[in-house]
Design a protein around this nucleic acid. Structure first.
Length: 226
DNA sequence: GCGACAG
DNA sequence: ATCTTGTCGC
């Protein structure tokens, strides 16, 4: 798919924070498509030497959840891991994978936060602006905000908030398993984000698009380039 | 100054 | 993210 360049990724942490504060004004929290045809999932991993970021995007068809396409991207690591600035470390590789993807998804799920971020600009939100597509943040642990524990069954959830402001949901995607931190990225809202995650799940903790991307990127990172 | 801290 | 064996549970 074609992607419009929004800005440079060659920044230092201080400038990255200023950019996030500037970009947050462009985010739109609106209901995502109710009947998406193609839902993609993206994730990253690092090569054993820690010098390269490998990204994989897997696009699935709904409601069958059958694979429609997948693509890989690589980029040198040129930004440190700083909580709150994850997109500056992983986006270059992710964007290359999307440029190589032979179709345009209706929605994209990312491994990380969306709105549930200190400046409301998590990885899913930032990439949503670049892709100009509805995106959802699906994180395995908390970055910002608090919420009571959700019930023990799949589907139960509690609103994640920061000083009263709703940021997303702590959602149980499998009975008795640690919940996921789901928040809207761009062109999405809180109920829509949670609904998309539940609709693309198959009984595993992670929704299928993200789970398949995660599994594939893990193997690729430990094997020569394609 | 002391914790907290996506991947 | 990544380093790492066995082990508890269904």
């Amino acid at each position: 798919m074609r992607i419009r360049r929004l800005h440079s990724w060659d920044l230092d942490p201080a400038r990255a924070i200023r950019l996030q504060e500037e970009l947050r004004t462009r985010v739109r929290l609106v209901p995502p498509p109710s009947r998406p045809r193609i839902v993609a999932g993206a994730d990253c991993a690092f090569t054993p030497d820690g010098k390269t970021v490998v990204a994989v995007v897997v696009a699935l068809e709904l409601p069958s959840l059958r694979e429609a396409a997948r693509a890989e991207g690589r980029a040198p690591v040129r930004f440190p891991y700083v909580p709150g600035l994850l997109s500056f470390r992983e986006a270059p590789a992710l964007l290359q994978a999307f440029r190589r993807l032979p179709l345009v998804p209706d929605v994209v799920l990312f491994d990380g936060q969306g709105l549930a971020h200190p400046r409301r600009m998590g990885l899913a939100t930032h990439l949503g602006l670049w892709l100009e597509l509805p995106t959802v943040g699906v994180a395995k642990s908390r970055l910002t905000g608090r919420a009571p524990d959700p019930g023990p069954l799949r589907g139960s959830y509690r609103t994640l908030r920061d000083a009263g402001e709703p940021l997303g949901r702590v959602l149980r995607t499998r009975d008795g398993v640690r919940p996921l931190y789901v928040s809207p990225g761009h062109l999405c809202d809180i109920p829509g984000a949670a609904r998309l995650v539940l609709r693309t799940g198959r009984g595993f903790r992670l929704p299928e698009p993200t789970r398949l991307a995660d599994r594939e990127v893990g193997r690729l990172a430990r094997r020569p380039p394609a």
